[in-house]
C-alpha cells in the first residue's frame, strides 16, 4: 500500500522555498546597502590632502 506522507513532501518544498527565498532577499538587501554607501561616497567631496603639492 502506498504510504500517506504527502505532508513531508510539502514541508520539504516549503523549506527549500524559504531557504532560497531568504537568500535572494539577503542578496538584494546587501546590494542595496552597498549601492547606498557608494552613492554617499560619490556625492561626498574628497578630503583634501594635507601634504604640500609635489610631496
Amino acid at each position: 500500500m502506498t504510504p500517506d506522507n504527502g505532508a513531508f513532501a510539502t514541508a520539504a518544498y516549503v523549506l527549500a522555498a524559504l531557504v532560497y527565498g531568504a537568500y535572494v532577499v539577503s542578496l538584494k538587501l546587501r546590494e542595496r546597502r552597498l549601492r547606498e554607501r557608494l552613492a554617499r561616497l560619490e556625492s561626498a567631496p574628497r578630503r583634501a590632502s594635507n601634504r604640500p603639492a609635489g610631496a
Binding site: 502506498t2 504510504p3 500517506d4 506522507n5 504527502g6 513531508f8 513532501a9 520539504a12 518544498y13 527549500a16
Partner: peptide
C-alpha cells in the same frame, strides 16, 4: 506518486538536484 515510498519520494526533485 511512487507506489512504495509515497509522495515523499517527490523530495528527490529538490534534494538530489540541489
Amino acid at each position: 506518486i511512487e507506489a512504495r515510498q509515497g509522495a515523499a519520494q517527490k523530495i528527490l526533485y529538490i534534494h538530489a538536484t540541489s
